[in-house]
Nucleic acid binder design. Structure first.
Length: 452
RNA sequence: UGUGGUCUAGCUUAACUGGCAGAGCAUCUGAUUGUUAAUCAGAACGGUUUCGGUUCGACUCCGAAGACCACAGCCA
């Protein structure tokens, strides 16, 4: 029943400030106006339970027939899912309501009545949902995932900004590859020259690091890999910090603090969302320094033991890069992320510095996320020698002209420097504990997905 | 690109060894003063992704194409 308090309000009362659903706790006992969309509607005779969604949350409203005009009652009675709706009512704490608060509706205005919204609260397949991605974003789970993404990105920026890094973004249109040439998107625009969408801001970071000391770039990255796995997107967002006068060890220390900070922020700011996602938060609480540091040789040993025990199908050969099952096996041996360092130079990018102790190794590090989420970070120390890089560019058959500016960095004040790149979507999927990276970006672009 | 799998109503799906395509949700109509992906009653909705074949008869078997999914390689 209505409380005496709410009955003192008349429908024409002016004191009904607009508020957002996540602010309702501060307005208990007062009359407010909510602007949103109908999430779901249940009825029980002279009683309606419209659930209203406004982008900040979902709240259950209660409409008693005797509390509203006949016109309002009739308008609400048959309202379809996702109808646009403005509701005025009093806020009441109620244990029976999901979320803890309820709105006793005094008045409502239907902005648009909707019929036949395609996404119901029941089960749907991924293909159908992806075809309706523009609407799917409204559902509770997607909302939670993208809120976590938002927090991951804020944490990334806050961490680096507070740690003395300067944002210096790299260009998206580039004249040449930084890594493999086979995975580049070509852009036909510049006269007499082909351009490509960036695969990494890495090389440009090395220039800005020499100007600012500690820098990062953060933007979209494009890889025309013909891969369609739960860990790959064609277009994804990557943050890449780079530090002058820094070594592989400095990078590993940074990775550790960086990822731990992100996990802590997500745990702190996204409790509700993690609950919606049914995330086992103990897995995130375990992400604290120090992370195990595993030499490539020792990682290979670990894989051999796994194979001997029959836990890995194929015996890993020293010299290769780890496959997905290998990464999963390695990360399963630890309760937190693992940093594997000093890979064979042959499988790493041309700009990696060689290990002075063992020339066949590169001073690179991959951070393998726990729970089989795979490589979230790849990085390392960069080569400083002009002669070495000239030889590498030749060996990789890269167009020398396009790299002259890069070689200048080795001619004028070349110092040890190091950095890494982290994929935002892989990190977000890991934080959320979800199967596939495609849900961690508003509009995923994949091998067979360009729309919507 | 390779290997394996799936495709039935708007959605999620059932249909035995080849024998009348069946349900739930959504939609529409009504009931219900505390519903929680509400419930109850009623109505309407498909000829099985496409093309070809075998058969008295094909959702079911065969061939091809398409779409999608998983895994692998590659990477963040």
């Amino acid at each position: 029943m209505t409380t005496p308090e709410t009955e003192t309000h008349t429908p024409t009362s002016a004191a009904a400030p607009p508020v957002y659903i996540d602010q309702l706790a501060a307005h208990v006992g007062t009359t407010v106006t909510l602007h949103g969309w109908l999430y779901n509607l249940r009825s029980s005779g002279k009683l309606l339970f419209p659930q209203l969604r406004d982008g900040t949350g979902v709240v259950q409203c209660v409409v008693f027939k005797k509390n509203v005009s006949e016109a309002v009652w009739d308008a609400l009675k048959h309202l379809g899912q996702e109808s646009a709706l403005i509701v005025r009512g009093s806020v009441r704490a109620d244990e029976r309501a999901p979320g803890g608060f309820e709105i006793d509706v005094l008045d409502a205005e239907v902005v648009q009545a909707v019929e036949g919204y395609p996404i119901t609260l029941k089960e749907h397949g991924t293909e159908f949902l992806m075809d309706h991605r523009h609407l799917w974003l409204r559902s509770r789970r997607q909302h939670a995932i993208l809120k976590v993404r938002h927090t991951v990105i804020r944490a990334v920026r806050d961490f680096l900004d507070n740690d003395g890094f300067t944002l210096a973004d790299a260009p998206i249109l580039t004249p040449a590859a930084c890594e493999g040439t086979t995975t580049l998107f070509e852009v036909d625009y510049f006269e007499d020259e082909k351009a490509y969408l960036t695969q990494s801001g890495q090389l440009y970071n090395e220039a800005t690091a020499a100007a600012f000391g500690k820098v990062y770039c953060f933007g979209p990255t494009f890889r025309a890999e013909r891969s369609k796995t739960r860990r790959h997107l064609t277009e994804f967002w990557m943050v890449e910090p780079e530090m002058a006068y820094a070594t592989l060890d400095d990078v590993m220390n940074l990775c550790e603090r960086f990822i731990s900070y992100i996990a802590a922020r997500v745990l702190d700011e996204r409790k509700e969302e993690l609950k919606v996602l049914e995330r086992d938060t103990s897995k995130l609480e375990a992400i604290v320094p120090p992370f195990p540091r595993l030499h490539y040789d020792d990682a290979v040993k670990l894989l051999h033991e796994g194979h001997t025990r029959g836990e890995l199908e194929n015996r890993f050969e020293w010299g290769g890069d780890f496959g997905a099952p290998d990464e999963t096996y390695i990360s399963q041996q630890f309760d937190r992320p693992v940093m594997v360092h000093r890979y064979p130079a042959a499988v790493k990018a041309f700009y990696m510095k060689r290990d002075p102790e063992r020339d066949e190794l590169a001073l690179g590090v991959d951070v393998l996320a726990s729970e089989g989420y795979g490589e979230v970070i790849g990085g390392g120390e960069r080569a400083t020698s002009l002669e070495y890089l000239e030889a590498q560019i030749k060996a990789e058959e890269l167009p020398r002209e396009s790299f002259e500016w890069y070689l200048d960095l080795r001619r004028y004040g070349s110092v040890p420097h190091a950095g890494f790149g982290m994929g935002i979507e892989r990190c977000t999927a890991w934080m959320c504990g979800i199967e596939h990276v495609r849900e961690t970006i508003p509009f995923p672009r994949m091998l067979y997905r360009l729309r919507p």
